[in-house]
Design a protein around this nucleic acid. Sequence first.
DNA 1: GAGTGGTCTAGACCACTGT
DNA 2: CAGTGGTCTAGACCACTCC
Lengths: 262, 262
Amino acid sequence: MAKYERIADDLRGRIQAGEWLPGERLPTETPDLTTHYKTSLNTVRQALGVLAFEGLVDKVHGRGNFVRKPRKPVTRTNERHQWEKDRAREPEDTRRQTGATEHDTGLTVSDLVFSADFREAEASDDLAGLFEVPVGTKLLERIYRTRYREEDEPFNVARSYLVYDVVKANPDLLDPAQEPWPGGTQNQLFTLGIELDRIEERVTARPPTAEETEELGLKAGVAVMVLRKISYDTTGKAVEISEVTLPGDRTEMVFTTPLNRW
Amino acid sequence: MAKYERIADDLRGRIQAGEWLPGERLPTETPDLTTHYKTSLNTVRQALGVLAFEGLVDKVHGRGNFVRKPRKPVTRTNERHQWEKDRAREPEDTRRQTGATEHDTGLTVSDLVFSADFREAEASDDLAGLFEVPVGTKLLERIYRTRYREEDEPFNVARSYLVYDVVKANPDLLDPAQEPWPGGTQNQLFTLGIELDRIEERVTARPPTAEETEELGLKAGVAVMVLRKISYDTTGKAVEISEVTLPGDRTEMVFTTPLNRW
DNA sequence: GAGTGGTCTAGACCACTGT
DNA sequence: CAGTGGTCTAGACCACTCC
């Protein structure tokens, strides 16, 4: 076993034994750890890199290496979809009270900060195929970011696509100033006479791109979970496609599948 | 921008431009890349480390650095649950034909290799709470591994827990030699007079532990997806809890949520 | 400016792969 | 055995944070 692995194992054990509590700083790389383990800087850094990748240690340039605090997990359920559908036909003051994310997290609207960006886009191969429209068809692309009020980085970046010609029947939907829209996308679709029949979600995990690392404030070694949500209307057509990027270390998704009775 | 980042960017661009095709070897670290980029070995290795983390490059000790081939993705849907429930009451020869994994992947039984390990375990805090039994209650723990016949490493490790006293009514269920059980867990429960009402799945992603890296044959930077599946019977009790570990870079999970009609 | 982590160098030696 | 990546060293200098 390599020396850096032994050092990583030793430090991991000492952290788990409580020698340093979450939030506390580890001994400095130089000179403390190098002299304690009688090794060179590179080796100590390689060991710390392992722990950082595992999410046990936060490396902070200029300040030190810290034992990582467990982060507040964000739960997302698929019950939100039925909940949102039920709410879509409620009067506006009911819809305004709370959104699906709050429904999932148990938080109130004031705990969270949203921002929305709208623009027009052309259907890529991929999206055109799902929407069953020609490549290049005009789409409305909306980018949503959600974060905790007391944190800097969003825990959620969503890109939502709708076919432009479908949405333009209600000009309010083209206006970012109307966001956050009370009742969410399902209410927006309701104003267009569209009812959803089912929602399909595909989940994968992968290492973040450099941009995502920046945008989501990810630490080294944290994967992103990518969720692609496709909403189908009652005629079986895809009406909204949404791609959500979530930090893997703090996101839990819950899916409940009811089964038919014998 | 650091020199290693510039080198990583350059190499990434050259790979994407097709200078080396998937499966091909990159120039050697020493002396090719160090002299080409006029830098030291450490710096070249740091750059390659970035690309390995992104999954673009496979580092292979003693052979070289290779452009990674896209891996065969494994899809898992939640429709499998209803499918498995329907099949649970079929005659044995029907059940024997194919399992849920083949149903998802479209493969046949002979493409896949299973192995099962049985042992007794005591209910941890966590599991006891979900099963609503006292901590320490005897459980049957079963560990399943699935891999492609032509690959070395499993793409799936599952730990399944059942309450021992519930299962022992059918002694065949305690015998690893009976695996793979035709019709899966839902048929096993059926032999005990248990019908499932719904299945809840919680999904997270995190960096792998050292053990998981080994067991799943993961490359640097690949996250694992962890799926905890809880099966509830028609009285609302949790009857099976299963923890599945999947390599994040080749797993896609699909969940379809049907919505009630207006 | 003092303290701390981040990058980089040049070189040595070890470990694995294939002939 | 030759070729290739993996680990390690000792030391220099840069970049960030906080006083």
